[in-house]
Design a protein around this nucleic acid. Structure first.
Lengths: 187, 187
DNA sequence: TTGATTATTTATCTTATGATAAATTTTGTT
DNA sequence: AACAAAATTTATCATAAGATAAATAATCAA
């Protein structure tokens, strides 16, 4: 839990009582490389914190698999379009490496919001921050070339190449694997 | 305020006291067609509710103006990447028609969160919903052709063509005005 | 270690969109 | 109404990325 508490403190300080309440609805999850953590069609009822490993969210469009995003250590991952709507998700979360996570039961978490406004505030701030990241991502896709996006990714996550297969990176960038290979070949 | 309260109730019911507290930090704003509501370089300290009119958020990339999004009646608009970070925004909000808005002072709103958890919850839900919309927007840009995106926009906002110049729609779709004209010409 | 599978690169050809310029239409102002 | 300015369309040529196929490289399992 230690890293998780450190992560929380970046957003909002919690009382010991609140930390205990979250610990009570959390449990460790270990998962092997290439396994799905959550599968397509399943409604999101768990928010995960990544202690170790790399995650990606993916979905299918016309039978082609598309990676929506990656998440690394000391970050939270969830399919928010299901978490916040209660609808089944068309997306899955897969762990790209052998991974250790902490799963927080989200229906129980939302119940805690009533008793602990500090917990509601914490997650409000976490998701506001994730929202800002997503807004910035729209900007990066909307009017940057594939090559610019590739270079930006390398700058922001220098180790992504070591840890994530190129085929996943390609669809994340919005291009085919062949195009990515061409862009990489230029230099 | 009536429509605003109706809008709020979609997300979270508020007590009369909470409504009064929000009313006390809100004021009407009227603005002429094509005027900027908030300008580039200015830090977002107001959240707007649109009673009448159409808004867009825009910014510049390499001296080219890009429209990030539109907002119509009975919606909220704010430059969240500034609202939530406190940093000056590289973006502006412009009203595309003569408009009537309600401006809510955001520093004061955030202070209300301490006294009224119900208000914090309301805005948490409002922005969670906006976050989900943005996640869906990433998906629409990431792997759909310009023509698909145009058709989706028409389906989602059938009256956008009547109210918004095509040059704004083009950059919103991530293409040039000339390309949009070509796509429209096909049918 | 070997063979099979999967990932990545390279090559060729096609296509959607960009850049630029010019023509036309619409809108706004006097 | 008439002019000017702005928005939209049309045309031409250039280019980045898609589709497909095949070659090579890396990974995995027996």
């Amino acid at each position: 839990m230690n890293n998780l508490i450190k992560y929380f403190n970046q957003f909002n300080h919690l009382s010991d009582e609140a930390i205990k309440a979250i610990a009570d609805i959390s449990k460790p999850v270990n998962i092997k490389k290439n396994q799905d953590l959550q599968s397509i069609g399943h409604t999101c009822r768990t928010i995960y914190f990544i202690k170790k490993g790399v995650a990606r969210i993916y979905y299918y469009k016309d039978d082609i698999e598309i990676t929506e995003c990656f998440a690394f250590e000391n970050a939270i991952i969830a399919r928010v379009e299901s978490l916040f709507t209660g609808k089944p998700s068309r997306k899955a979360i897969q762990m790209i490496e052998d991974s250790e996570l902490i799963g927080i039961n989200s229906p129980k978490l939302f119940e805690l919001y009533d008793k602990f406004p500090e917990i509601e505030r914490l997650f409000r701030k976490i998701f506001e921050s994730a929202y800002v990241d997503t807004v910035n991502r729209v900007e990066s896709i909307q009017f940057h070339s594939a090559e610019e996006r590739y270079n930006t990714l390398l700058k922001e996550s220098p180790n992504v190449l070591q840890r994530v297969p190129l085929k996943y990176i390609a669809s994340f960038l919005g291009i085919t694997q062949v195009s990515l290979s061409r862009i990489r070949g230029i230099r």
